[in-house]
Structures are given as structure tokens and as C-alpha cells.
Design a protein around this nucleic acid. Sequence first.
RNA 1: GCUCCUAUAGCUCAGCUGGCAGAGCGCUUCACUCGUAAUGAAGAGGCCAGCGGUUCGAAUCCGCUUAGGAGCUCCA
Length: 633
Amino acid sequence: MKIQLKDNSILHYDEAIRVGQLAQDISPGLGRAALGAVVNDEIKDLRYMIVDDAEVRIITFKDDLGKRVFWHSASHLLAQAVKRLYPEVKLAIGPAINNGFYYDFDKDEPFSHDDLLDIEGEMKKIVQEKLDIEYFELARKDAIQLMSSQGEDYKLELINDLPEDSVISFYKQGEFVDLCAGPHINNTKELKAFKLQSVAGAYWRGDEKNKMLTRIYGIAFPKQKELKEHLEHIEEAKKRDHRKLGKELDLFTIFDEGPGFPVFFNKGIILKDLLINYWKQVHKKHNYVEVSTPIIMNRSLWETSGHWDYYKENMYTTVIDDEDFAIKPMNCPGGMLAYKNKKHSYKDLPIRMAELGLVHRHEMKGALHGLMRVRSFTQDDAHIFMRREQVKDEIIGVMELIEEVYQKFDFKYHLELSTRPEKRIGDEGDWDLAEAALKEAMEEKDVDYVLNEGDGAFYGPKIDYHLEDSLGRTWQCGTIQLDFQLPIRFDLDYVDSDNSLKRPIMLHRVVYGSIERFLGILIEHFGGAFPSWLAPVQVKILPVSSAFNKYAETLVEELEGSDIRVEADYRDERIGYKIREAGLMKIPYLMIVGEKEENKGTVSLRKHGETKNYELSIKDFLETEINNMYRRL
RNA sequence: GCUCCUAUAGCUCAGCUGGCAGAGCGCUUCACUCGUAAUGAAGAGGCCAGCGGUUCGAAUCCGCUUAGGAGCUCCA
């Protein structure tokens, strides 16, 4: 007997029986429950069946939901093993995440590396025991009794927070029972390949006022081969780490003498300058004007802006002539002064006032991360002052600018919209207007976004652009934030057509976010092998022996005359050695020159990542390669 | 800031249960004048992150500090 499902998948007899049986057990109140993992003979792929109300769907490990189900079950496997080895440990929560799963435990002594190996061993045993993973429900009273009998205080807290009428569901495998909404795979035997990766601290319910629990992270796959590939992929990704490449490629470093304060070397500065030049070009095109405001300003400015009261622990302060001063953590107050410097007409708006501003913030030391999170960075800021009816178009304009820049670098990114938080200022009408403007802008641009309800700044809602690093961690770079607070605090105005004074609406926005963070992303994105327009050294000339150094010098001059960033390696080293070294520095173009080339007035061109050689003249090189390169600009 | 882990030559790392500080790369010098990813030889280079403790004796064990890493929290 076979059953045909909605998506035309075929189930075999015993699987179908199981579907029928389990479907009966599912309570109507349950959103969905996993019915089990089966191996489809034809597709040879691990599959699960999910009942979504009445609809039966089949998902596989390839689906995002399939992965989450699988990893969630792996987290239960982890918890079961931990409870067997350490019965005194209390369980907190154990969800699937984007790349694996974790489980939070409350344990007096932290887990050591060896403990992880023991736990993995116990997990393997449980897999071999082939325990069915069973679903059941309890009335609130019984659920509380069960969890308190097991001393699971955290689970009790979770149950108590569930709404009165909600179904309280559990999953059971062997002796192990866990409060859980599911779904899960149906038997521990499917969890064939897993690895516990790390131990970390994490606050209970993500609140730093709560107790810090011990979190174990892990990853699991249906097949050993997939696990191996995944772990290899991580190792490869680590080679692209911008901190490692920053050192290897001589771009930047961070000395112990200045934690969080990066030091850029010449090649890093070239990259920064290229980013800045491109930025200026794009902003000019989009009709921005540029200003520059001081790094240090007095206390009264920061009191007006509110930073002195609300942001003080992140600010570096000093005393000059007995007066308090602060080093700016943000550029906006300076921008407000620049706007206020003269009266504005409604005809002047929108004013798009850009500033590459160096800001300093006293970030917590544990938050620092290479160039991604530093204490001193350059924001590619701009403040747009506009009339009410210009808001949506200005937002769209900024979105288009950000897209233009990110596309140039082929970046993968996603958008997040954060709306009004509980603690906020300003009247509801302004919030309505602002949120509507952001939403409309995104709808008009037809972009997907993640909605973070209640996650906006206290002064206004925002759109954030998140970019991925080599390990898939995302970093907020671009942001568009509406702000009602500062125009009021600084009493900004413009003269409207009826000669009345009106308050402009302001938005803050950054495209790169910070030059430093963006550069970090950029380094990891290209793995240090920058496209030729960005490479700090574009061409390296390698004479085969010192007899050809003279010829190399003439080539250097010729290329420099065409504004190519060029170096030559005049050392008495073998050509193979020079090529290897230049290759490790990921220089896009190597020009090898010896007797043959000198006689013909050519070079032997070798492109990064290729072993082929092209013999051509500098003139041809400039006309083909370099023209191509700048055509992409 | 919190939890766990880490710190040995410029870089990457070895150094077992405490007993004279090691390698490769890089650097310097010499020889080779070289044809597409490492020429050979010699040499210099270390208060084993810092401070304290245990010990006859500490790179090694313990504590504190500093810095780094994985997360959490917070943020561009």
C-alpha cells in the first residue's frame, strides 16, 4: 500500500501507517508536529513529515525547516547525554540556530574540552539505542508537577510564562523528557553525524541581569560525509578571517597598547583611501554636500544632544581649561550645528549633509572584534534635513545609494526594519509617519526584510543593512534612521512658503557603516584577493635576474605614469621564489621580465590565480586589462 | 562587563608527569645571476605577556593583571 501526498511524494506502507497513527494523536491545538524521519527509497534522502494542521508536508534536510528539525532533535540528544552523565545539571533551552544547535545548562562546574568528548560518546550510545522520539501533552498542573519532580526550575519558569490556554507539549526519548513545542524527527538513530563545537556562557533569557548559563554549541548532519565537508568548509572560511589576512597582507594591526584602536599600514591606507574616493564620487553624484566637524567639543553641546546624560559610559571625556569636553561618539551634534549656522528656506531642502567623521566609543572589551567592532572608527555619515513630504523619497534615495555601493562589491546582505520600542520619545503621529515612510519605501523598492518589532532607537525607527563575514556572522553596516529628537533639542527650523517657521525632519544614514567594519567585510569577502581596482599593489614586476633590473625600472616608470600602483622586486632571488612571494600577497598582476622580454619590449604577464602567461607590451596591458578594470568602475 | 579557552623568537608553532630554550619561515652575511609558487651555507634574534606565590629548582603548578579567541550582553 502506498499513500500519495499533496506534493505527490509517495510513502511506503509502514511509513503511511505511522503517519496515520501519529496524525490521530495530534491535538487540534498543536500548530504542527513532526511525524517522523523516513528514508525514501527512491530519493535516498532523509525526510521528515510535518503535519501543519491538516496538511501533510514532506520536508528534507535540504530545507531550512528540515535542518531546524534535525538540529533541534540533536540538541535534545545533547541534553539527554548531559543528564545521563551529570544528573545534577538543570536544563534551560536548546533550540536550532542558523548553523547548528545549542543547549543551555545550569551547572556549577563548567564543561571542559574533555567533558565535551565524553558527552559526544554518550550521545553516540543514545543514537545506537535507537530511541523513538515521542510526543505527548500534559495539563498545566501535571506539567508543573512533572518538571518540579525533576527539579527543572527553568522549565517551570517557561511553563508559568505560557498563556493559560496553551497546550503544554513534551517530547520523550527513552528516560529523557523535555518541555518542547517540537517538531522533532522520530528516532535518535537518524542523528548519525554530529560534533560538539564549543562551550560559551550565555545569560538566561538573554538578559545580563540573569544568571549566566553554560551553553554547548554543536552541529549535526544525516551523513558523516556532510559533517566532514561542513567542518572543512569552516576551516577554509577561517583562512579568510580579516584579522589573519590583515597581518599577512600587511594591511593593519591592533597593538596591545591600544585595544580596539586599529593601526593601518600603508597598504591598508590605500584601501581606505580607495573606499573614501569612491564614496565621495558616489555622494557627489547623489547631490550631497560634505562637512567636517571637530572630534572634541564641549559639554554643553553633548548636554543639548542628550549624549552627556544617555551615552556617557561610552564616551571618552577630558577637561580643557577647567571645562568638560567629550570626544565625539557620533557625528550628529556637529551636523546639527552646521545646519543651524544659518537660516534655511523650504526651497533649500532637502539638504544632504555628509561627513566622514572619526568617532570614538568606549565599547566593552569583550565586544571588540578585529576591524568589525572597534573603539575608533570613521563613519561615512550623512544627515538629511527635509520637509515632511520629502521623507519617503529621501529614504528611497538613500536605499538606492546603498544598493549601488553594495552591488559594486557583490555583497550579500539583508535588510531589517526596527519599529518603535517601548521606551520612546516623541508623539505617536511622528512615529506613525516615520514607520509608514520606511515601510512604503521598502514596498516601493520591493525588497524583503526582517521585521524587528520594538527594536528601533528611542528617537526613531530604522532600516539596517546586514552584511555577512566569512563565517556567516552578520554585521550591521548601512543604516537609515529617522530622528525627531535632535531637531527639537537643537531647535532646528526652516522658513516655509507661508513665511512660518517649521521644524525639519531629519534622518541619519551611513552606507559603509564604518570604513573599518566595511573594510573587514571586504577583506573576508575577497579572501584578500582584491579586484585589481582595489588591490593596494596592482602590478609587481619581477626581473628574472638582476641583469634586467634596469629594464624593470623603465617599466615601473611607465606604469606609474599611468597611475598604476606598481612595485618591483629587485632582490637577487630566484624567479620562482619571487613569484611565490608575490602570489602569497595576492597581487593581481605579475610581470616577469628577462632577456626575451627586454629584447622585444614586452612583459610576461601572470594573473593572480592563473598559471598561464600572456606576453604583451605595457601599452597593450593598459589598453586591455586596465581599461577593463576601470570600465567596471 | 559576563562565561570558557589561550599567551614560548618578527610570523606559524613544538617543548610529556617541574630539571641548561627548540623548529620552520622571515631577517643579516656570503656564494650562485638564475625563466613562472620555496638555491645553498653561515649567523643574529627569547626576562617563555607582566606581577606575585608554591618548590632545592617554574616556560611548565597556583593566584592576580594585561592582551587575544569563541560566545552572551551591548552596538557601525
